[in-house]
Write a protein that binds this DNA or RNA. Structure first.
Lengths: 287, 287
DNA sequence: GCCCGGCCATACCCGGCGGGTATCAGCGAG
DNA sequence: CTCGCTGATACCCGCCGGGTATGGCCGGGC
């Protein structure tokens, strides 16, 4: 009655994302006719229309939208199960470490807290091996969901903690990072409004899921690149306090009085029941 | 490379729970040899030993434990996707309601808050149809996870909110419910220690997942049954304040000064993105 | 010590289903 | 009206999931 094989989910998601059977089939590395049949069978089995195929192409029905969202979550859970099982499996092999953990951290984020955490945990008796996995902009959540990571350092309000268990580790204010010579660099403090429209110094725009919000500032996908652009007096950026650690001589940092505080959490999938993970969390909350 | 079909997960979970290929096959309605092969294939594909088959029968390896936990979560996610898709699908049919929602509530819990919520929501413009689904003792979480429900009323500290988004709705104290004639019934207040060992009046024990904790008190699985046993002077029980609503003349309620407060939340799967659900949550938080 | 019974693995067979190619059918553009 | 695009249909094949029969291993009972 249920059935719903993961293959069918993969197929449907491909079609739902492409809204085009031919392209979806190509993406899946198969021919189009079997894909059409598979979707038809899926619709028959669920007793529900998932796609509207009319003259204007393919579009999602309400049920299709639901299955797209829920199916993505389900597929993530399945691949997470596979990945985590493979990881645990290595532990039984000769030479494998018991309870290896993958910790996702924002690439380029402050290393101070991370260092303290790793050092403190390594000192614990029976500590597991921790693999630190730098993640792209704000994708720690996806890595936890699809099993690439077991635990993550996440930063409110940039990451969403929805669906995870978490403990608060640290709160910090934010600073504006300006070119050292800029007039505003002499100020004791700034407000968000101040930095949002500095003449000839637009705010940098970070890549979010591969796309950029429209705006005047330069498009950034790398911290070094941003540091350089600031040093050259071409842009300004907002960072948590701990970013001071990597500032250059050509940079100036000014506290932002009204920027929302950045709260660093350690987060993990709610259903986790690993002793190694529990130990790491305990260590983290004691810092 | 990933593969991992849900059928294989079902198979493995059956074997992992039974720790016996024959019984697992019977439970799955199939013969034992194909099941053995499927598990072997699964192990080969994951590159990991999941089960130890030695002279003393079958036992789980570390990787097997991981796959059991993670696989259950993944299977729940898959069946949730199927169920929710079927539900949404009905909405497109003639006569079907748009955005039907299933709300899980603890069977026998206070109806006061629930009534207020349903009434207030029904008065909203464009309100969806709400199906109220009474759930067994504290299994609202499972119902959210496997898609039987879309949203639930949960009671801290009895339900775990881990993995869900939630909003707090109400906090109440707890009371001891005693036979009306009992000496302690005259007291203005009691402590937990007071009710835990009243001579000849043991605390009732609720069924938890079909089993009972060992203890002297009667085994309860039904509120009416408990009410009767209290009225007969055979037991005592602890309830949230709102339980006063259904007390009988033969019952006496005494506030417990040191019992943890019961906090009612409205909770939903973290990834939900339904307008009907959003409306219900908005209504609930405004109560 | 031997036999038996329980249990998982292996061997072998079959039918269905997943996937491929060729082709049709609707529809919009030119 | 025709052509091109796209999804559906028709038909075929090979593999895999599932069944039955049986083997190998081990532990317990007589």
């Amino acid at each position: 009655m249920d059935a719903l094989e993961t293959r069918e989910l993969r197929y449907f998601i491909a079609v739902a994302e492409e809204l085009h059977f031919g392209r979806a089939a190509e993406r899946l590395g198969m021919a189009q006719p079997p894909l059409s049949r598979a979707i038809q069978r899926l619709e028959r089995r669920l007793g529900v229309l998932l796609l509207d195929r009319d003259r204007h192409g393919v579009s999602l029905t309400g049920a299709g939208e639901t299955l797209l969202h829920e199916g993505r979550a389900a597929l993530d859970a399945v691949t997470a199960a596979a990945r985590r099982t493979r990881r645990t499996g290595g532990a039984d092999r000769p030479g494998g470490r018991r309870g290896r953990l993958v910790l996702a951290v924002k690439a380029g984020a402050s290393h101070e807290l991370l260092h303290k955490l790793l050092d403190a945990y390594a000192a614990e008796p029976g500590a597991a091996e921790i693999e630190v996995l730098p993640s792209g902009t704000c994708e720690q959540g996806e890595m936890l969901r699809d099993g690439r990571a077991d635990v993550a350092l996440m930063h409110k309000p940039f990451n969403s903690l929805a669906g995870f268990d978490s403990e608060e580790l640290m709160t910090e204010g934010q600073i504006a990072v300006l070119p050292a010579g800029h007039p505003l660099a002499a100020r004791k403090s700034l407000s968000l409004a101040d930095v949002e429209d500095i003449p000839d110094l637009p705010l940098a725009r970070w890549a979010r899921h591969g796309a950029y919000r429209p705006g005047p500032g330069p498009e950034i996908h790398d911290q070094t690149q941003l540091a350089q652009l600031i040093a050259l007096g071409r842009t300004v950026a907002v960072f948590p306090d701990s970013a001071r650690a990597w500032l250059w001589a050509e940079h100036a940092a000014v506290p932002l009085v009204d920027a929302p505080p950045v709260v660093t959490h350690i987060a993990w999938p709610a259903h986790s029941r690993s002793v190694a993970l529990a130990g790491l969390i305990r260590t983290a909350t004691r810092l």
